[in-house]
Amino acid sequence: MVEKKTGLDWVLDILNTTLLILIGLACLYPFWYVVCASFSDANEFLRHDFVLLLKPLKFSLEAYQYCITDRILVGYRNTLFYVVAGTAISMFLTFLGAYALSRKGWMGKRLVTLMIMFTMYFSGGIIAIYLWVQQLHMIDTVWAILLPTALSTYNLIVMRTAFANVPESLIEAARLDGASEFTCLFRIVIPLSQATIAVVLLFYAVSRWNDWMSATIFLRTADLYPLQIFLREILLTSSADNIISTSGGSTNTVALAETIKYATIVISTAPILCIYPFIQRYFVTGVMIGGVKE
């Protein structure tokens, strides 16, 4: 029997709903402000004295015209390749490692797990990694971006815990029917761990999308640069001044520099923001499954 709500319950519901709406607006407004600023006329935006910005000021695409160049398109192409190929390699390696560490009866499993977790707290540093990549002749190649950071220890541990929750009886039954370990992994374990896989997949994809340090260290050819390198040049070096100088003085340089900063933020974050709503429902389930001790 459902209890009837009292007047106090209705008041609390209204207050909670109002509070959550206000918190949601406070979280969403900075994103909306950046979008409006990026589509605003540079001079109008510079003269705008109010913090509140609800719509673009004199709609203009001028900032995007200076940002979206051939170099940016090359960066987008390279970044998409790094994200797709890098995430595929990372997920494959994570699947193999997590499956091996999650199944019972494997000798040395505990020692290998401790060795892997050791790398979360201690590493050789950038110099050691650079020398390692150099000795493998991967400097200034796509492999320098794809392989050195292919596996995340945290993601591996989360995936291992999720795979360990798959009943061992299902694996044993499949083995009795002649299934190989690869068949058990890809036909049984992975389909039963979709929530955690979606979370780890997004972790890897976002990490690849935002990665600029690896390109800065290992790449020398501009044709291999990811998008983040070009955007970083616009924001932190003289590239913005060089781009703005082509305007012929029609727009205030300082004002246009400000709108360009907002445009670069939109360009770099829009793809991830478009993908996230489709898999955000897996987040709580996936993280909780992968975060419970077996």
Rank of each mutant, 00 (worst) to 15 (best):
Q134W: 14
K293E: 12
S152R: 04
G75Y: 11
P191Y: 06
P56L: 07
I127P: 05
T246D: 01
L224W: 01
V35L: 13
A128F: 12
Y282A: 02
R103F: 04
F31K: 06
I127D: 06
A255N: 06
I188E: 01
G108E: 01
I89K: 08
G97K: 05
D140K: 14
A37S: 14
Y276H: 09
G108A: 07
Y130T: 07
R232I: 00
M91I: 13
L61R: 07
T113D: 03
T79Y: 06
N165S: 15
C27P: 00
I272D: 01
A174H: 12
V11T: 13
A42T: 12
Y33W: 12
I244C: 02
F163W: 04
Y82A: 01
T94V: 11
V189Q: 04
V189I: 13
D49N: 15
L57P: 05
S102D: 12
R160K: 09
Y130V: 03
T87V: 09
I197M: 09
W209M: 03
R281Y: 03
M117W: 02
H48S: 02
F39N: 12
Y64W: 07
S38V: 05
E168M: 08
T183Q: 15
V199P: 04
P226R: 11
P226M: 12
R208M: 13
F31T: 11
L156E: 05
V266W: 15
L114M: 15
V287A: 05
P30F: 06
L273E: 04
C184F: 09
I145F: 04
S90K: 07
Q280M: 07
S250R: 10
T153M: 12
V142E: 11
T253L: 01
V2I: 14
D41K: 06
S38C: 05
I267Q: 10
L114C: 15
R208F: 08
R110A: 10
P30L: 09
L147A: 08
Y121M: 14
S60R: 01
L170R: 11
V189A: 08
T119W: 05
Q228S: 11
F218M: 03
L15N: 03
Y262C: 10
A144G: 07
P277L: 09
D223A: 13
K4F: 06
A37E: 03
Y204C: 04
L12H: 04
T18Y: 02
I279R: 03
A174R: 08
L176Y: 13
T149F: 08
T119V: 06
S239M: 14
L52R: 10
S40L: 04
P167D: 06
K261G: 15
F122Y: 05
